[in-house]
Design a protein around this nucleic acid. Structure first.
Lengths: 194, 194
DNA sequence: GTCTATATAGTGATAGAC
DNA sequence: GTCTATCACTATATAGAC
């Protein structure tokens, strides 16, 4: 099992992505240099270009795989009643976002560092996710379970409210994530009810 | 009214701040160079340092005056009933933030580019604003008008929901700001009611 | 696959002339 | 108050050795 000269590991690629994720989230895309990522991984800067065409592709890949994962992980059962579907969405959203704060942060904050084409792809994926919530809200309005004048507005309000948890939640805080999720669910439920 | 040699205008200071506000919001603090700000103002880079000690002070000043203005502009009448006070807060918040999207964006996105000391000052001002909303919620809980298990959680949910409007609102969109404000107010009202 | 070395350009900030 | 010139660094990305 021969190795080429400088190959010290078969997992440099994932480590590059992990380092970039951490550093972009902590300092912002523009404030992180390729040298800094290389130092974090433990290689020289030239080696990074075996794993990414350039710095912006690295950012795009991180955002893209985050949103891919979000769409894959989220589920909805159109046969259930709208209230149960909405509760499931709320609980899923909070926990999924809680589990990957760095990716969430980057996906919201670094959109302007994408090229126009990459931006359009990311926005398309985000819209697909948001559509799932709006579909639930529409079903609830149709069935009479929910009362909202505009499902798109309500969808945005709910998403912003839930995602905002990531900006202040601390695991050693006063309330557990489950307590917080329960309170948010009650607020969402009341906000869209009659 | 003599002028010193290169003085072409008495309002360079405000123009530096306006250019920095616009560029920081559009590209991010780290991605904007002092040369770029100077070009936007129409001076050479050296001249900027007559108006700011360094780049970070410029950012801090923008955030600080934004939050100062926010605290000055917001008002609350403790004699009114909690529901009216909450409605007033919601309408004020939405309109104030709508009117200055660049400053709002910077105040949320560029916190990590502040020194520890500057960060603490900005966070203190933000907390003071948030306390005003929490005070209203507490009054409503005490009077029985509102039912929320935790006023701090509810406060954060309301702030995130309202501030989120800035991320998607477009003046040429489907709904007017007043329509949107009315819908958000109904959702907030229901979310904190019994 | 990783290294070193380098090309080319840009960075924040300052000094001193006017 | 603004200019020009400059210092000392840092940036992304690539070439070619191993």
């Amino acid at each position: 099992m021969a190795r080429t000269a400088g190959s010290h590991s078969g997992i440099t690629g994932p480590r590059v992505r992990a380092a970039a994720l951490k550093l972009f989230a902590r300092q912002g895309f523009a404030a992180v240099s390729m040298r800094e990522i290389a130092r974090d991984v433990g290689v020289q800067v030239g080696a990074l270009y075996n794993y990414t065409a350039d710095k912006q592709s690295l950012l795009f890949d991180l955002m893209h795989s985050h949103l891919d994962e979000l769409l894959t992980a989220s589920s909805d059962d159109p046969q259930s009643d709208p209230l149960s579907r909405l509760q499931h969405f709320v609980e899923f959203h909070v926990h999924f976002h809680h589990d990957r704060p760095d990716a969430v942060f980057i996906a919201y904050m670094e959109l302007r560092n994408l090229s126009a084409e990459n931006f359009a792809r990311i926005e398309g994926l985000r819209r697909a996710y948001e559509d799932r919530l709006e579909t639930i809200l529409k079903a609830g309005v149709a069935s009479g379970d929910f009362v909202v004048p505009d499902t798109k507005i309500a969808m945005r309000a709910v998403i912003a409210m839930l995602t905002g948890i990531n900006t202040w939640f601390r695991p050693d805080g006063r309330l557990s994530l489950d307590d917080i999720t329960a309170q948010y669910w009650q607020m969402v439920r009341k906000a869209v009810s009659a």
